[in-house]
Nucleic acid binder design. Sequence first.
DNA 1: GCAATAAGTCAACACCTGATTACATAACAA
DNA 2: TTGTTATGTAATCAGGTGTTGACTTATTGC
Lengths: 190, 190
Amino acid sequence: MTSSQKPVRKRNAEKTQQAILAAAQQTFFEKGYDGAGTRQIADRANVNVALINRYFGSKEGLFQQAILPELNIDFMLEGDMTDFGQRVAEMFAAKTGEKDFDPVIALLRASTSKEAIPMLRQTVEEQIIKPLAARLEGDSTHERASLIITQLTGYDLLNRIVNVQTTSSNGADDMTRLLAKTIQDLVDVV
Amino acid sequence: MTSSQKPVRKRNAEKTQQAILAAAQQTFFEKGYDGAGTRQIADRANVNVALINRYFGSKEGLFQQAILPELNIDFMLEGDMTDFGQRVAEMFAAKTGEKDFDPVIALLRASTSKEAIPMLRQTVEEQIIKPLAARLEGDSTHERASLIITQLTGYDLLNRIVNVQTTSSNGADDMTRLLAKTIQDLVDVV
DNA sequence: GCAATAAGTCAACACCTGATTACATAACAA
DNA sequence: TTGTTATGTAATCAGGTGTTGACTTATTGC
């Protein structure tokens, strides 16, 4: 009876904060901002609810620290822009059916929450559109970057959230090819 | 004294149902599925909450009858397809800042609700993508139609919900032009 | 070992949600 | 006028929300 059956985490503020952040990331990803409850996040992190407020001030504060840093476009900008369309189209096509954490889905699921929108707006602009625009040449880089992002988020929205069958029976490759072309046309100078 | 001074609605099931539907449409549009409460809808319709359940069975039933029929692209398909891109791009650009009921926004706002998604999926497929695909010529019509819809919904999402500044200071016209071109390229045979 | 402090727990708050119930009332037919 | 049915009302249910302050417990420095 003396052996410690239960794996009691030793008191460690930093580690419990990490546990909360990880649980929040996963839960916000799965349920969106409104759909994710603080109790649910706390349970997932094996932590008391009140600690969320202690460490992050509020649900909003937790969201800011758990999700916003993940909203960046770095993974898409690795490599040069000549095959950006193809590369990104394949990335997004490959994500179909994927269940693991994905910042784009997290963004979409949170995007209709009154509290989350103000936080998302600045983040999308600063961490996504501007960096992409900076990699484009020619005119109207901000507009072209925006259209690329709207196309990709729209694609993820219908493909992975609403779960609409975006491809007909034989057309998965067609879809990727068309998406790649659409994106690349916006990258190349018009 | 016999004259009825106060504007009590005479008992009329049909009219109160219409009032509920109208209030539901507006409220779901503004707040999304989860964000719209039954009490709020009932208040707006000047009607008791219980009547929602009496007439529509549940919140879901109300959503189905209030929103789903509005999710169609008929208004985009009026006219021929040679200037579809330009026409639609202007439509969507003009909607910026618009507050009236808009089925695309209603779709987006509802798209993050677990209960709403199954209802949305079939509707988007049957009432939006298929009719558009039917108007396209050439190959991969379903895929091209899907990409057009993903681009447009993504555009509305960032432009009108997250409210990201999709255009730089001087680029509103550029934006419309680029959006028109992107869409039309998907309409024209590839 | 002991006190100080950090870490974590607990119960409750005030408020909201969708749904259901018993009940009152208006409209209409016999 | 009476009885019946359609229509609307108010109270209530069981559960959920984020947040708070007081409490207990573990860890650390002396």
